[in-house]
Amino acid sequence: MRPRRGRIMLRKFSTAKGIIMAGQEHKNTVGRTEEDEAPDAAVPPSAAASAQESASTEGLDDLLDEIDGVLESNAEEFVRGFVQKGGQ
């Protein structure tokens, strides 16, 4: 069981050595390591462009056939059943 809020004393620490809060010098600087992952985070534009090109040579009918196969059956009922409550 967790303590109820009324019972606990909340201790605030604003002196967290400056590594969490601003305004103080920090000492725990650690350099970036080889775990950094920038190179594979993005696909080079040329690769994306060639993917586009090969895609455009595929037949449209082929695409629509595939999508026919994954669409929910009974479109009217499915769309009507999708009812949401309020949101932001």
């Binding site: 004393m9 620490f13 967290a16």
Partner: peptide
């Protein structure tokens, strides 16, 4: 028993 809150503002 005390919680310790570390602000990260």
């Amino acid at each position: 028993r005390r919680l310790q809150r570390v602000p990260t503002r």
